[in-house]
Every structure is written in C-alpha cells, then in structure tokens.
Design a protein around this nucleic acid. Structure first.
Length: 480
RNA sequence: GGCGCGUUCGUCUAGCGGCCUAGGACGCUGCCCUCUCAAGGCAGAGACCACGGGUUCAAAUCCCGUACGCGCCA
C-alpha cells in the first residue's frame, strides 16, 4: 500500500517568520498538496526563554497571508485541529518523558552530570584528538557516583548513547546518500538539566507520533540528521524520508539576515508585495522546472512541484526579480481588483474612502502597467486628489522662459473648450501648438509638469479629462 | 579544528556522457512603438561550466585532489 504523504513545518516561535522559513513552509505544503497528502503545523516552543506568543501569531499570520493552509495544527493559542495534538511541544512534555524513561530503562540513555566548564575542557581535548565532542565519560557511572553527584547538588542532563562503530547514512531526497562516521557523533543530550527535551529529540518523537512521512527542512539540519536517525532506531521508529533544502543568502553571499533588508514575510506584506507573487518567487528560489517556467498559477505550482528538482546549492535572494514578478501579477488584475487589493495602502494614504474627483478604478486602469507594488497605487494617483510638490525635474521644465506664455495660453484655451475629453483635448492642444509655432513637446511637457508636478505619468489628455476642467485650470494658473 | 554540503552569465536557473559554438528568466544596453514614464515588440552584451588531474572515441555532465563559500559540532 502506498504510504500517505505527510509533511510538516515546525518553527520555533522566537521571532517573525522569515523568508527561509516561508520557503520551507511552501515546499512542505506544495509537496503535500502535490501528493494529495497532509500538511501539519507544529510549534516547537520548548525554548521557554525565547518563545513568545507574538511570534506564534506572526507565524500563523504569515503562513495564512501566503495563502497556505495546514490540515493539522494550532488554530490559535487555545484551539487546535487534528487527531495528533497537541501541536505545541510544551503541551507534549509527558510524551518526551515517557520515551526518555524507556531509553533510560533499556540502557540506551544515561544521566550526565558534567558541568559546563567540564564539558568545555572535554570538547577542547576532543578537538585535538579528532574525536566526538563528548567522550561519554558518564556512560558507566556507578549508583554511588550518581548519588554523590546528586548530593553535591548537580542536576543531570540525559544523554543518548551513540553507536561507536560503523556509519549512519542519510538518504536525502535532494542530496542522495550522505554518510557519517558514528565514532564522531557525540552522545546527544536529549534532556536538558532543566528537564526539557532538546530540539533533536522532541523533533524525532513528534515526527513519529504525527506520522510524518517526509521531513523537508533547511540544510542546517543535515548534520543533525544522523544523530536523529540513531534515535529513531533506538526507539524502534521507522524512518521518514529526508530532504534538506539549501539556504537562502543575502546579496553578499552570507546567510540572509536583517542586515540585507527585509527578512520577515510580514515586512514584505507591509511593503506592498502580493502573497501570490512572493509565493511564486519563493518557489523558484532553489527549484525550477526543466523549461525554467517563471509564472505559475497555484494549481500549476502544485502540479509541477517536485523535490527532485530542488537545487543543492544556496540561492541569493533577489528583490529586483521579486518586484518584477509582483508587477506581473498586478498587471494581470482588473482595475477593480487593483483597488481592492491595495485598500490598506489607499486608506493609509488617505485616498479611501473615495475623495471627490475621478473614480479610483479609472485611475487604476490608467496607470495599471506601472504598478510594481501595492503601495505604488496611492503614490502614482494621489496627485489627482490633492496638492503636490513639484519634482526637481518638473521645476526645471517649468523654469524655461517661454513656459509662462504657454501655460496662460493653454489656460485661456481650456477655460471654455468643449468637450473636455481625451481626443478632443488632444486635437485642440495640437492645434494650439501649430498656431503658436511650437513643437508638441514644448507644450506637452510643461503642461504635464504643471498639472501633475512630474515629468512622467499617465497619458496626458486622458489625465486632463479625468482631472476635470476646474482642477486643470487651477493648476495651470498655480504653475504659471 | 573536525565532520558535512556546495561551486553553470551580476542574480535565479536548464543541463543527468555526444542534441552545448551552454538554453530560459530577472537585470543591463540599443532599436521600434510613443505626449512623458511604463508596458509591449525586436536585437544585443554577458558563463574559458571554481581550479588541477584522471576515466572515455567523446565530460558542464563520471572519479580524485585543491581552493573558496556555507552549515553543524557551539
């Protein structure tokens, strides 16, 4: 029988969901959807100091904003869905306890009383002699020794006993077989002195308990995988398949971080990126089809996605290409959609509710092919509704000596010209040029600068029509 | 330091031994369109496939080593 595909994203809620995490989520989600399987969200909040509920909500918000959904996992702080809960590790502590006790009883794990300082020394020695970073000295403590340690107030960590012979092979879907020498694997701490499970242990217990079939995660976990595999084996669990994704780098080739600008998904939302564009872009960061297809509908993405097509080497995040892609998506929207989607930005700029003047939709249609980000919408059409500062370029155009005459001439013409419409205006103004013996450019440029404050913008005569006679005249006089 | 992973145009990538005088996309340059800016169309520059050795009739593709980058141990 074919195994049901179950993937998961298991973030630590210690900050916003960043771009790398978003891509990992996306790939897990795509893989599950592609195979008709399930996608699970699990919150790894065992780091009590750094975990925050704000981070948890940011993670929910980010994933939802990207248009991804999870079949099992928390819905909010109190509610969850799915038969394998809880999906918060802090609520699963007894489960880890149980497995740790089992390992202890079977002699596969042991208490280690070494202090930080002692461990530091052991590690340094190990480095010199090319051994694992812990020498296993607490493996065979007598009951007496344990008692003495306890009496002296030491709290033990629990370590898992790694095999000393042979090797462990990780059969990675993306990288192929990767083998590690067991002798070099240190006895992994599975329970901290505080009593909580460590990441590598809780992760194994949960992935098994939640029947995860494919563990798809960042490259940084590849080195921990052999130790996890040994734990799977010791616990008698069957192994999931592993796939380690390459990392995402900043433009300077180091791991993408705040130094490189926006790293959190929500920041991209605030900057006016569309979730569908970010999702499309992220899908292509480290994955491609044979044809190098660029633009995908969600359906196409699910259909085409394949872990085997994933890149082994790290990818550099390129915001320029993301912006291009965002523009592609915006251009595909109807004017009504553009307005609907940029609602928060329009509100933020005071353009919604609709102000007196042309309809937002008409302006969206007018400027459609110039929008790259949602926030460009208010930026590009705001001058239809309110006064503006002239750009330096516009001031230059208006400073030319003949301009004053041109503008007053235009004002006189437009005062009573009928109909005040695109084509008719164009005809009249072109005629005005001929009469005055001016080249069209000598008239069009100052006119544009006068009414819009810029040297670039919408097509001129339709812009005049939409602005309306009154405003155009007011601005001509102001600029003159 | 040890172990692991990686290395194709500036960037994302196609490529799984002959189709490669290396294809696509973003960006860049030029031309066309044009009232500006975009969008669109066309054309172009841009990669000695990290480097050095093998294997083979044939290598970007397979093997080994070196360098560099990244990750884990921390």
């Amino acid at each position: 029988m074919k195994e049901i595909v179950r993937t998961r994203f298991a973030p630590s809620p210690t900050g916003h969901l960043h771009i790398g995490g978003a891509r990992t989520t996306l790939y897990n989600w795509l893989f599950a959807r592609h195979h008709g399987g399930q996608f699970v969200l699990r919150i790894e909040d065992t780091d009590e100091v750094r975990s925050t509920t704000d981070s948890v909500s940011a993670i929910f918000d980010s994933i939802s904003w990207l248009g991804l959904d999870w079949d099992e996992g928390p819905l909010d702080m109190e509610h969850e869905k799915g038969p394998n809960g809880s999906y918060f590790q802090m609520k699963r502590l007894p489960l880890y306890q149980e497995q740790i006790q089992k390992l202890l009883q079977e002699g596969k794990a042991y208490p280690c009383y070494c202090t930080k300082e002692e461990l530091e020394v052991i590690r340094k020695d190990a480095q010199k002699e090319n051994r694992a970073s812990y020498d296993g000295r607490c493996r065979r403590l007598t009951d007496r020794q344990k008692k003495d340690y306890e009496a002296s107030g030491r709290k033990p960590a629990i370590r898992f006993e790694m095999p000393e012979e042979g090797e462990t092979v990780v059969n990675d879907i993306i990288r192929g077989p990767v083998s590690f020498t067991n002798r070099l694997l240190p006895d992994l701490v599975i329970q901290k002195t505080t009593g909580g499970p460590t990441y590598n242990f809780a992760c194994v217990v949960d992935d098994h308990a939640m029947s995860i079939s494919h563990v798809i995660r960042g490259d940084e976990h590849l080195s921990n995988t052999p130790a996890q595999i040994q734990i799977y084996k010791a616990l008698g669990f069957s192994l999931p398949q592993f796939a380690h994704l390459s990392m995402i780098m900043g433009p300077d080739g180091t791991k993408l971080s705040k130094r490189h600008g926006a790293t959190s998904v929500l920041e991209y939302k605030e900057q006016g990126f569309l979730p569908e564009a970010l999702r499309n872009y992220l899908a292509l960061l480290g994955w491609a089809t044979a044809e190098s297809k660029q633009l995908f509908t969600p359906k196409e993405l699910i259909q085409a996605f394949d872990l085997a097509g994933c890149q082994k080497n790290p990818a550099t995040f390129d915001q320029v290409k993301l912006s291009w892609m965002n523009g592609e998506y915006m251009r595909a929207f109807s004017p009504a959609d553009i307005i609907a989607r940029s609602e928060t930005f329009l509100k933020g700029a005071g353009l919604l509710p609709q102000l007196p003047g042309p309809s937002l939709e008409k302006l969206a249609a007018l400027e459609r092919e110039k929008f790259k980000l949602l926030k460009d919408v208010p930026d590009r059409i705001g001058f239809f509704y309110r006064d503006f500062e002239f750009t330096p370029e516009a001031e230059k155009v208006l400073a030319k000596p003949e301009v004053k005459d041109v503008l007053s001439g235009l004002a006189a013409l437009l005062e009573s010209f009928e109909p005040f419409e695109d084509k008719a205006l164009e005809g009249a103004i072109r005629q005005f040029c001929t009469q005055k013996g001016l080249k069209p450019g000598q008239v069009f440029h100052p006119l544009r600068a006068a009414v819009s404050g810029r040297t670039e913008g919408p097509t001129l005569f339709l812009m005049l029509e939409l602005m309306g006679r009154e405003l155009v005249l007011k601005r001509l006089r102001r600029a003159g």
